[in-house]
């Protein structure tokens, strides 16, 4: 009997640690290529920080997306919300340091509003989350494009501290990301809301039968998701000095954040996964980019390989499951 349970438990263990395995593999390839090309300056702590620094916007968005996917939903509106946040923040600040706080507040409120609307559409109107957030994305895009041109503005130099400033030798933005990640981990691991997220994502009907107010959990997860997207919009505005309505879509933050979350071992149907997997996924993504840069892969070939790697990484642990996926 003990061997039977052992055999049954083994695959789940592999599944649990597979993001770490993938991360180790990516790291190994990176180090091997750097060594074989004799580029040891890419193996210093500074290089590590610069690799991480490149994926801050994706990281913040992906943390939020993790909540949406864990609860059994999905958010396709993040990319457009990022653009909207960047545009609105730079329009409100308009180079005036005194307007920094109001702009941040307005942008975060806007994120909360979008998240609430997404959540309400999904719970009250029972719209499929893909369609609800896709519709929201189109609406945001339309609003942005029709206001574009009337909005100008740029962020004041003081606000660029968010993207370029350093505290104790570490980039400030990286520390913000770390705080967001740890906060998300604490919420998911140690709070009632966190365990509600897992139970609602696992089986909404059972969760409701167990007395969880499932609608509230879904709405709250969507609000968190949109807040994270707004934050990454603020970061991008700070980095690029002004917002453009194509920021989010050009970075493909909607699909990339989903891919990162799924590579991190969170399953699309919800209820299983976690923040650290997502973090591993983000690092894997930026390592892949760095590997391609080191090896000097052509930009288009890079895209082809990227598509294949996303599918292969997900297949890496999906292939063992016996469930029939859609």
């Amino acid at each position: 009997m003990s061997t039977a349970t052992l055999i049954k438990r083994l695959p789940s263990r592999i599944e649990r640690y597979s993001p770490a395995l993938l991360l180790a593999a990516a790291l190994l390839i990176y180090v091997a290529i750097a060594l074989s090309l004799g580029l040891t300056r890419f193996l210093t702590p500074e290089a590590a920080i610069s690799i991480l620094n490149r994926s801050i916007a994706l990281g913040m968005t992906a943390v939020g997306q993790t909540f949406a996917i864990l609860v059994g939903s999905i958010d396709l509106s993040v990319a457009h919300l990022i653009s909207a946040s960047a545009v609105v923040s730079s329009a409100i600040m308009n180079g005036d340091p005194a307007m920094m706080a109001p702009a941040v507040v307005v942008v975060l409120l806007m994120g909360a509003l979008v998240g609430t609307l997404n959540g309400l559409m999904i719970t009250r109107l029972e719209v499929n989350p893909l369609i609800a957030t896709l519709g929201m994305a189109l609406i945001i895009q339309g609003c942005l494009a029709s206001f574009h041109g009337k909005f100008g503005g740029s962020v004041p130099d003081a606000f660029q501290f968010f993207a370029y400033g350093t505290v104790l030798g570490l980039p400030f933005s990286l520390m913000v990301l770390a705080v967001v990640v740890v906060a998300a981990w604490v919420v998911l691991r140690f709070t009632r809301f966190g365990s509600n997220v897992y139970s609602v994502g696992g089986n909404r009907d059972t969760a409701r039968a167990a007395g969880i107010k499932t609608n509230r959990v879904v709405i709250a997860s969507h609000i968190l998701c949109s807040l994270c997207a707004s934050l990454s919009g603020l970061y991008l505005a700070s980095r690029l000095k002004s917002g453009s309505p194509w920021l989010g879509t050009e970075g493909a933050y909607d699909l990339e954040s989903i891919a990162v979350v799924v590579i991190g071992g969170t399953i699309l149907s919800g209820g299983k996964g976690g923040i650290w997997g997502t973090v591993a996924g983000v690092v894997i993504f930026s390592l892949i980019d760095s590997i391609f840069n080191l090896a000097g892969v052509d930009a288009f070939a890079k895209q082809v390989m990227r598509g294949i790697i996303i599918v292969a990484a997900v297949a890496f642990y999906a292939v063992r499951s016996k469930r029939i996926v859609a």
Binding site: I258, Q303, R306, G307, I310, V311, V314, V319, V325, A326
Partner: peptide, 30 residues
Amino acid sequence: VVSFLRVPSLIATLGMMITLNGAAFMWSSG
């Protein structure tokens, strides 16, 4: 990929989309 590797079709076809776009660029050199 969907049937045997059990990758959800959303991700599988998303990967295919990225790959094919890259292939179109590669083929025409951009």
